[in-house]
Design a protein around this nucleic acid. Sequence first.
DNA 1: GATGAAATCCGAGTCAC
DNA 2: GTGACTCGGATTTCATC
Lengths: 163, 163
Amino acid sequence: MAARNEKTFQDEGLDKIDLKILRLLQGNGRLTNAELADKVGVSPATCHRRTQRLFEDGYVRQVRAMVDPGKVGRGALVMVGVVLDRSTPESFAQFEKAIARLNFVLDCHLVAGDFDYFLKIRVGDMADFNRIHGDQLIALPGVRQTRTFFVMKEVVDNAPLDF
Amino acid sequence: MAARNEKTFQDEGLDKIDLKILRLLQGNGRLTNAELADKVGVSPATCHRRTQRLFEDGYVRQVRAMVDPGKVGRGALVMVGVVLDRSTPESFAQFEKAIARLNFVLDCHLVAGDFDYFLKIRVGDMADFNRIHGDQLIALPGVRQTRTFFVMKEVVDNAPLDF
DNA sequence: GATGAAATCCGAGTCAC
DNA sequence: GTGACTCGGATTTCATC
């Protein structure tokens, strides 16, 4: 398979209409096909086929109701930098496998720099986090140290993609 | 109005049925009201009223089509720690105002610790980021220094809330 | 005050063109 | 890509508890 350059995504089968559909659905995933067709300027049938293809081909991974974290007891956000004992593939694999089971971890990214991983975690409050940190984070396989950054103010959280 | 503790969110008017609706819609925001009613075990009419209230009362902030970043030319993820020159309210406010205009910034959080802010940024590739870093990030008001962490592997990105 | 059954209306999904 | 047609779901009404 040929290598793909993200810059050429418009050549991969996405025209102006597809992009417009994607942007509109990102803004409001509940738009009916009729509304969508009207805003995009094509017939409902065409819009329906376009949208279906965008889902089938994986341009839209899923449609998700974004629940207000504070209203369901997950109002506290914490960023955590993690350093592992060893930088071996096995060490990384073991850590990643263990992380995937922790449902309070929203993001986990392997990074280049002073840390091995960055985590984004949502919990109820600081006490929750301290318990989790002691019970589950430092107990993860191969963790040498963690550095915790409590979020004091969420300026922008999970902004929509600009494309 | 009485102070609210997030831990008591089940007392704020969310019963088992509401929670089930929220979880199902978080998993699939395209569920029809009929499907939802069936899965939850109530009549379509009741389900519709419940769901409507969850939207009106802000439990669901929005429903969003999650677009595959790589397929629209935003395949590169970068975390950036920012330190400001001065830690004054004016300095913070100015920075936050400027950040809000940068549409490649997905997250911007004021944190406690070695940095003032943490940013999560999506761009096309490393070259893109280097240009943006030089043009726009270090040019932000009051920025003393930035530390860049390129994401080498997205282990978990934007996991759904567990509640 | 919330529920579920029924009745209406409108959009999803499919067809021929 | 469009227009039309059918079926099923969204939404409202209403009786009921």
